[in-house]
Design a protein around this nucleic acid. Structure first.
Length: 425
RNA sequence: GGAGAGGUGGCCGAGUGGCUUAAGGCGGCGGUUUGCUAAACCGUUGUACGGUCAAAAGCUGUACCCAGGGUUCGAAUCCCUGCCUCUCCGCCA
């Protein structure tokens, strides 16, 4: 959420930035609503001030056991008037809040202005895609053939866009998660968090998923409980409504969780394999940073995520998302894309964003410098480090052999009792 | 799931309809005293949305005692609903 005063004073800039994101102009009535709201607010508050004074006078008269009935009648009439005005003021206020909540974050000046994902800008590449001397297979063929991945039984017990991992397949998923968590906690200075996989709607509002993107989420029936679409939601909300000391920043947290997404609107996209599932595992990196450092923190967070791929020897590239492709709450996003032989292209495996104060304002996440002075909103960042399921398939596809077996990357062998190769049992 | 007790400022804690603009204390900040530190003493203290102002400061209004409704001229206080915490019982990995 943007600051109301900022939007009021920079309405043209905000409209311009929304149009750069490819969004329609929803702020045509903003000035009018804002003006009407204040008009009724001022009027209502004036009547309230008079009523408060009258109440004091009534109290004084009653204490002296004198008649106050005239004042009481006048005060009652004031009350009626106040109620009328407040209803109007509140109607305009909720319209204004709705408008404010629909405004996405302002992209950072370094973000390329574009019309689609085609305008994303490549920042760097690491590693060389392997040249195969045979026709590489996709993981949805390799996995079932190796007996480590089962779509048919997943469809039976649950439905489409779910998978069952079996034997070494399940162990590989667990090994990857542990490898990532160990890397980030031991070498990158993150503290591990294991949060609930279910959150309330206030948390989803804090990160910007609600109210606008309810359709992307799974909601539990009969309760204000939702399955998390990413660990970003519970972890960013850990310090909601709290004030952090500046000297303790940045706070760097990492969390392994399952993630649940309805993938509504993704019909026909990535229907084969495990690229796009309703449930997947992810290791998430989250930072709470000082505003003046947040872009440096974004660079280091992205590097921390890249390190996973480097250790696993998986080729990748980093792109800056254009204004048209970036998320609602983000001011700048780097996507890390891993090389996938099955699609002969780079595919997203991590998304690293600086939200500046956008989430902090919604979640009331503040900092105080030196234990004194005014509080300010801190900056939040997060990124996948990495999506475990997509890493799983990247390993399977990139390390496949002509005979259908898969070589285990060296970095993972300690997590698999030294296993060097996954073969048909 | 059942029964009971609670939720008050950064923290502790008083407060059963109007001299409460929330007592008192702790902490924080500023000051006085002082070789230094400590102590003592004095003062001060939050958030949001508005108004005034070119702007800031200042001044000023409204709201905020878990949340949302209600009663009342007037609510921290009374009523209803929800959420959360604690104690006991039951159930459970």
């Amino acid at each position: 959420m943007l600051d109301l005063a900022f939007v009021r004073e920079n309405l043209d800039v905000v409209k311009q930035k929304m149009s750069e994101r490819g969004l329609p102009d929803s702020l045509a009535d903003f000035e009018n609503i804002d003006r009407e709201r204040r008009k009724y607010l001022v009027e209502a508050e004036g009547f309230k001030a008079r009523r408060n004074k009258l109440s004091e006078e009534i109290a004084g008269l009653k204490r002296q056991r004198q008649d106050a009935s005239a004042l009481i009648i006048e005060s009652r009439q004031l009350g009626d008037r106040v109620q009328e005005l407040e209803v109007k003021a509140q109607a305009y206020d909720s319209q204004l809040q709705d408008l404010l909540r629909q405004i996405p974050n302002i992209p950072h000046p370094s973000v390329p202005v574009g019309r689609s994902a085609d305008d994303n800008r490549e920042v760097r590449r690491w590693g060389e895609p392997r040249r195969f001397d045979f026709e590489p297979k996709a993981h949805w063929d390799l996995g079932p053939a190796l007996g480590i991945l089962d779509f048919e039984r997943a469809a039976k017990i649950t439905g489409a866009r779910f998978a069952v991992y079996t034997g070494v397949g399940a162990r590989l998923e667990r090994a990857l998660a542990n490898f990532m968590l160990d890397l980030h906690t031991r070498e990158h200075g993150y503290t591990e968090v294991l949060p609930p996989f279910i959150v309330n709607s206030a948390s989803l509002f804090g990160t910007g998923n609600l109210p606008k993107f309810a359709g992307d989420l799974f909601k539990l029936e009969g309760a204000d409980y939702w399955l998390i679409p990413t660990a970003e939601v519970p972890v960013t909300n850990l310090y909601r409504d709290e004030v952090l000391e500046a000297e303790n920043l940045p706070v760097k947290l990492c969390a392994w969780t399952a993630c649940f997404r309805s993938e509504a609107g993704a019909y026909g996209k990535d229907t084969r394999g495990i690229i796009r599932q309703h449930q997947f595992q992810k290791v998430e990196l989250v930072k709470f940073a000082l505003p003046e450092n947040s872009y440096d923190e974004l660079e280091s967070l992205t590097r921390n995520a890249e390190m996973v791929l480097q250790r696993l020897g998986l080729p990748y590239r980093v792109v800056t998302l254009s204004t048209a492709d970036m998320g609602f709450s983000s001011a700048k996003t780097y996507d890390i894309e891993v090389w996938l032989p099955s699609s002969n292209s780079y595919r997203e495996i991590s998304s690293c964003s600086n939200f500046e104060a956008f989430q902090a304002r919604r979640a009331n996440l503040r900092l105080r410098r030196g234990g004194k002075g005014r509080t300010e909103f801190l900056h939040t960042l997060n990124g996948s480090g990495l999506a475990v399921g997509r890493t799983w398939l990247a390993v399977i596809e990139n390390y496949q052999q002509a005979d259908g077996s898969v070589v285990v990357p060296e970095a993972l062998r300690p997590y698999l009792d030294g296993l060097e190769k996954i073969s048909r049992p």
